[in-house]
Design a protein around this nucleic acid. Sequence first.
DNA 1: GCAAATTAATGATTTATTCAAG
DNA 2: CTTGAATAAATCATTAATTTGC
Lengths: 224, 224
Amino acid sequence: MSPAGSTRWCPTPEQVMILEEMYRSGIKTPNASQIQQITSHLSFYGKIEGKNVFYWFQNHKARERQKLRRKLSKQLQLQQQLYHHPNNHHFLHYFDSLASPAFQHLSYYNSPSPFPQVEVHEDAAKQQVMNYTWKLDVPEKPDIDKSMTKMYGGDWLMMVDLGPSLSSSPPCYFSTARPPLKTLELFPVSATTSLKEECCNNSSPCNITSNNSTPPPKVVLTLP
Amino acid sequence: MSPAGSTRWCPTPEQVMILEEMYRSGIKTPNASQIQQITSHLSFYGKIEGKNVFYWFQNHKARERQKLRRKLSKQLQLQQQLYHHPNNHHFLHYFDSLASPAFQHLSYYNSPSPFPQVEVHEDAAKQQVMNYTWKLDVPEKPDIDKSMTKMYGGDWLMMVDLGPSLSSSPPCYFSTARPPLKTLELFPVSATTSLKEECCNNSSPCNITSNNSTPPPKVVLTLP
DNA sequence: GCAAATTAATGATTTATTCAAG
DNA sequence: CTTGAATAAATCATTAATTTGC
């Protein structure tokens, strides 16, 4: 829930629906007066502030434009493909797929290096690429002790965190030994602790590192 | 369960139980390290991969949210039905507050349905209402038309936009002086709040940065 | 009872949003 | 503003429940 310390507005579905309706109705850049009215009315559905409305319209407008642009360019590319000989399709398709949002994390199409991270061949279909990355699955190299695997979408990437004592963040819910006999007794973790940990999740390095010298202060819950 | 040639992971009851227990314990979005631990330990009960764990938490979280949202929607519909009922004092009360000066320039009161309806199923109706309500642009002071709102140090300020047509006029500061509408107190919107329970806002930076303040020197490797 | 047909759950992908660094 | 990084939402797809007719 949005705790007191929450930094960001989480619109309720209704708020979003209404905002989108307004946008479609012609309100693209509400002025302050409008923003205030909108805010007041949306507050019926949940906590909301003027800035939330403002930013929402800003972003929404920007991204609608972006969407449109993307759609147009896609159409253009398709049209251009029609004029090309079938032999060229491989290439075009490939770059098409690279340009798709699904690959934004691999490399932007305007990136200087079009084949930066995952080596794929021209004939590799999108699907194949995805499967490819997943098949590798987790680690193997020993030095990844200190590595963090990060996932984005369907991809499984390896992130080596050179930062200090990253192992401190995730509390260990297991012993490294074999699984317990009574599974349910394994997790009588206090909600507080685990929730706290939860909020720290997301990749953003949770290192609460007062100094790098402290070796991994792992928390191991003892099994019954 | 999981046939040999199965294309997708079929969790064993034990695995599901453990995963659910962990979720309840607060693990909503395990990081890569946690995923690995979970995976290796759940593998005791059957074949499992990291991505399975990753997807499981993603899906579970999403579907819990979904459940809550649906519940909320139903409640909202009920509330709105109440609103339409002439005898409802709460809502009448609410609309009394709408009569405040802040809304005088909106034609809410001429509208057959003064409140933006959230009709999930009736797109046409929704559209109608919204157009009716919001299309009529606000007769605001023209001077803030080209204004821009900006966040500054947690405060919400109004700034004159230096963009296209910079009309210089007294900017309108509205956010700090909110109208005395107290809509939230009239209705139990706790459901909304609890919905956000999921949010587990990631935005909160978890790092209590150390002294050396070395920015996380991360290297992203892609597995071959 | 028991499969074929249907439907509900849920694993896996893809697309859209969000945040904030540059 | 642009864009990288991450998440959430939406969607696709397959498996399990279940219904149905025999």
